[in-house]
Amino acid sequence: MTEEIIITGFGGQGVLSMGKIMAYSGVMQDMEVSWMPSYGPEMRGGTANVTVIISSERISSPIVRHFDTAIILNQQSLDKFESSIKPGGVLIYDSNGITRHPERKDIVVYRVDATEEAARMNSSKTFNMIVLGGFLKVKPLIKLENVIKGLKKSLPERYHNLIPMNEKALKRGIEIIQKV
């Protein structure tokens, strides 16, 4: 089993950290993982993306151009990466700010309105955890409990009090994601 995922959106949306938590969760599940960020000035303000690969085997290339799953969080990224999804692959997107919705018919499209939900939950910081929850529902290759473990690993001790809130957000994401 190998899952090649790209997460892409604005810098500041928690794209890189969502990828990190995903990767940590994979480690908790004894899988091989790689986390390859786009790095450099584009991180500030512009778009940021990260490729996460989770696999039961040794990972060959950490850099790939075609993905099993794309998690897309802004219009620019949708325009750029919709075509990079493998036929039969999955696109998860947040419709907030999207003016041109996904058009491909040979992939499965899911919508998780995490921006809206995070606002409703009054915790915009957990936005990316709602998205991640949605991913867990669609691609159950990592277990929720391992994500919580991964969170503990990737968060500094002083933020561990935020874990219950994040868990709530993850669960909310699992509930609200829907196939388009």
Binding site: A23, E32, V33, S34, W35, M36, P62, I63
Partner: peptide, 10 residues
Amino acid sequence: DGAIGQMMEK
């Protein structure tokens, strides 16, 4: 190189 320097793995 930059890829190996920046990427995370186990």
